[in-house]
Amino acid sequence: MTNDPDMELVDLAIGGDERSFESLIERHYMSIYQLSFRWCRVKEDAEEITQEVFIKLGRKLNTFNRRSSFKTWLYRITINTAKDYSRKNATSRFYEAAFAEEHSREKSDLTASNPIGVKELYEAIDTLPARQKAALMLVAAEGMNHKEAAAVLKCSETTVSWRIHQARKTLKKIFSGWFENGK
């Protein structure tokens, strides 16, 4: 990658320069933490995930093959770490079904004063299969386009689009009334 803004620091860090490595961490700490928090929405867990990501970075930095930008690669590590975390704290399939039932809205329930809450939406996203959640988080929460998300997730752009489509279908079902209202 020719215009990776992290390139210089990464070079130095891989060469063994601790200060550069530390600067890399400083530079990206907040973004990784933010993504982690959006993923799990518990401050302590987000901190854990972030820590784990940077530990992995320390361990794996010299395997970075530079085929993507450093940030993309770091995000990939983050998504994977977050997924691991989710797996460990997995909600059972039963719960997901119950959740969907609980939170489905009848058309008539929805009014202007009772829109989908932020938390509800995130919780609903939690029930998605990890891959769909990842795609949705990167695109909808982090604001990446499908191409960028594909780079992080190491899949094709079409796959990303497909996963987003599936995710929205599920969300639609959960918040059926809300969607149909055309909002």
Binding site: A13, E18, F21, E22, I25, E26, Y29, E47, T50, Q51, F54, I55, K56, L57, G58, R59, L61, N62
Partner: peptide, 12 residues
Amino acid sequence: AIQAAMAEFRLQ
């Protein structure tokens, strides 16, 4: 987090 990462980095 920084400390742990640095430790890992040095170890590596």
